[in-house]
Design a binder for these strands. Structure first.
Length: 226
DNA sequence: ACCCAGGAATTGT
DNA sequence: ACAATTCATGGG
């Protein structure tokens, strides 16, 4: 962590985020759970995402007892690939139900090698992930960062977009800032511009900077907490 | 009732 | 190629 901070806390804004939330770590999540979770996460608030994931765990996972409390495991590829789209919709997934179903089948049938991704570099692994239904550049970056040990991944969501345009706007042209700040959702080209900036500016641990900036910025906006 | 959310896929130009 | 439009639903 000392090395990561030395390499990525490159300006006052980033240093403030590190200072305030020092101790924050990036999870090394199970790749399968991470994959499905971020397919569900598109165009949803974090509170709503938690709700959706709890729903499918209760509905398709296994009940376990831990510390005297009941929990439900995250459903396996086998179980989730057998769930109907109607069942997934009932869990509140909306239009994401189809993507979860199709991707689950590819994993269960071994059409896609999720375990083999860790052996790949960032770029080829990202290219592979994007072939999955419901996985675009942003979801792929989240999966790579949180479950594939790719710490140079720099996911760009609406928060990171605002942070980069607001605090690092001097790295972009005036025309680009006006165009992208107007875009409701980022175009693929705009995503690539901000993503490339993050990886070049913050370096091989760009994902750590992303996470500290993301969390710091969100705490400054009380209405989106929890 | 209104607004937006850790975007991606599809359709139109 | 690149720019609009569509897609379901819950929480603030």
């Amino acid at each position: 962590m000392e090395e990561i901070r030395e390499l990525t806390a490159k300006d006052e804004y980033a240093r403030t985020a590190y200072k305030q939330f020092w101790g924050t770590r990036i999870i090394r999540q199970d790749p399968w759970e991470c994959l499905i979770s971020y397919i569900c996460a598109t165009y949803k608030s974090i509170a709503a995402i938690k709700h959706m994931l709890n729903n499918i765990s209760k509905k398709f996972g296994d009940k376990t007892i831990f510390g005297g409390s009941e929990y439900y495991t995250f459903p396996s590829p086998k179980r989730l690939s057998k769930a109907t789209i109607a069942e997934l919709r009932t869990s509140g997934l909306g239009y994401r139900a189809k993507y979860v179903s199709e991707t689950s089948k590819k994993i269960q049938e071994r059409t896609f090698d999720l375990q083999g991704l860790k052996a790949l570099q960032y770029e080829p692994a990202k290219k592979e992930l994007i072939t999955l239904p419901g996985v675009g550049p942003k979801v792929a970056d989240c999966i790579l960062l949180f479950s594939q040990d790719k710490f140079e991944a720099f996911p760009v969501d609406v928060w990171i977009k605002r942070i980069v345009l607001g605090h690092y706007g001097n790295h972009f042209s005036k025309a680009f800032i006006e165009k992208t700040s107007g875009e409701g959702s980022l175009s693929p080209k705009s995503y690539e511009m901000i993503n490339a900036f993050g990886r070049e500016y913050f370096g091989k641990y760009a994902g750590y900077a992303q996470e500290y900036l993301f969390h710091y910025e969100r705490t400054l906006q009380p209405k989106s907490q929890k």
